[in-house]
Design a binder for these strands. Structure first.
Lengths: 195, 195, 195, 195
DNA sequence: GATGAATGAGTATTCATTCAT
DNA sequence: AATGAATGAATACTCATTCAT
């Protein structure tokens, strides 16, 4: 069913694992993890379900592997952040880098945003919470007034919000990205000056 | 098997519909809509699956009915907002009321937050988006600088963030709620003064 | 697909559970537990696989329930044996009754005989071993010479052998049954007289 | 990944076929033929499934080859028995040799004992039945009274029983073996004297 | 106002087997 | 002598839904 010598299959050799991850993430983000069946993934790749199992032991392993691959930059960012002094400048730099990392892994974050209930039960949940806690520890000064702590959380959230909920608002994407960064910068600045 | 005359079942009379909604929402929020089966709901209520079908035509109808019941206050809030002048005071009042409405319907919002992928395909999605667009139209002045628009979106998001992601932070719940409102107020204030 | 009013289905009402057990045991005995699929059982009963799951939670539960139903007589026999004095006469009576019980549950024992590897992993294994140990405790005098102990084990085994491995030998079934009992009687007699 | 030069693999050279048989029999005996997958066998040997197919055409061929290798002594025993006069002494000698052959191929007989349902469908079944029939023809005098015929069957069965069901009984293994032989001897003696 | 019995379509997963390299 | 990649067919099991009673 479909070309033996037409180059399409030729190209597939050796990168099936990657292709599975790509298609899977796309579908998971689109329809949710639970509602996406392995049959669907296989069909879209024009392989059999069993082929998926050659590359991944379970459905969960597929999403976990994607998660691990795509969140590595963020993990490194947090590692970096931990070694810096907890100054305002550091926080601004983290916001800048975090925003970039987010943009890089958009589909994954869309998936996570939209499938939190699933994510929570999927071990991903825990490692992601760990990561977020790491970020929080760098970002939040537990001695500061509550209001300032909330501002910092809000800054991070503004970045996430920027990814998904600004699509409805008109304007050049680059401008929007800049505006989002501005607001986030402002929030941490205010937190630091005790505005 | 399970009290015929012990009053438990007596009490149940007539409010089964309500009890189904309660248990269903609880489970949907906890495990996700897709992963919660009607068998599970029925078992927890100690009735048969078929009984659920006496009260609701489909699984979807259960969640839709919950949604409609629980978002009525927010719909009314938006209705109210639409008739007010788009002043800063109005926005602050909306933030106050929205925050209260959110607190009232916590499980539903937790469910929606965590099952966005599902919600989107469930007609709920559309009517919720309509509502949110209504809120946005009141909140956002499309002539204002992008940064200020983002601030307003961020204000709303801060309220949502406050519900779920502040649990990790120490402090009295009432204080935290107040801090969240403060930050949201600040954001809309700044948006208005062109900070 | 299959009469609605022809009486066949009429008769089925209310005894589906029993029918499942019957067909299942037949197939398990014939082809082995592992090689018998639920599809096969369902097809032979002209119901869907899902119907089986209405009556039994798992495949294992089917065989366990059969086992429990069919070994009750033997359990009762052992109970009875425990209360008797450990005389030769008691043993002869037990042999007589055990042989009868065996004959009654032939398909089950054929199944167990031929699927020991499966049985061992199926919890059935344990409860059956318990039962057999009960029989052994009544049957075997641990102070007697080893040879006599073996004779008693051999007596029980002769009964089992009689069920399955005498089919090849010519002769009237009743005569064969009598001969088997004779040999078993002899073995326990010799064990008692210290032959 | 798995010693290239460490001698382990060096040693493996040329005896993979044998190693497959060993591991396969061990697993078949332990878990049953159906429940043992080629993946499991391959993993335990640290080779790929495909490697098994280099040495054996099918799963069945593995068990058949084991069977043929391990039952050769018994086949020879029967051959020998056929040429002897059908005296009591011959039978005693056969019992002695058969018992020894059984002890030699314990895992195979454990496998056959516990997987009869499988064995029956696996062509092994037939050739084994042929063998057993050969034994029976030597052992059983079809003109003798039924009781004596049963005694002879029982003698063989006692040997088999001895292998598996005497483990529960206390005592020195050698003593138990001797006791088993004694009982078997007795049974054939009685059969001959028309006890 | 609810149950008992059943269905049809689906799910993730496993298996023996194949074949080009 | 063995591997990497894949397949086709099967398996146990689950789910939302239906309907006569």
């Amino acid at each position: 069913m479909g070309g033996t010598m037409d180059g399409t299959k030729q190209q597939r050799r050796g990168n099936t694992r990657q292709r599975i991850q790509d298609v899977a993430l796309e579908l998971f983000a689109e329809q949710g993890y639970e509602k996406t069946s392995l049959r669907e993934i296989a069909e879209r790749l024009d392989v059999t379900k069993a082929a998926l199992y050659y590359h991944f032991k379970t459905k969960e392993e597929i999403i976990v592997s994607i998660f691990q691959d795509l969140t590595k930059p963020i993990e490194e960012l947090i590692e970096w952040g931990r070694e810096q002094p907890h100054t305002l400048d550091t926080k601004r730099e983290i916001i800048r880098r975090y925003s970039a990392a987010l943009a890089e892994a958009t589909p994954l974050f869309r998936f996570m945003q939209e499938n939190q209930a699933t994510v929570r039960e999927l071990q991903i949940g825990d490692s992601f919470k760990d990561r977020m806690r790491g970020l929080r520890d760098i970002f939040i000064d537990t001695d500061a007034p509550l209001t300032d702590q909330v501002r910092c959380v809000s800054a991070i959230f503004t970045l996430h919000a920027g990814m998904f909920f600004l699509q409805d608002i008109e304007g050049d994407p680059e401008d929007k990205r800049a505006a989002v960064l501005d607001v986030a910068f402002d929030l941490v600045s205010q937190a630091h000056h005790g505005a």
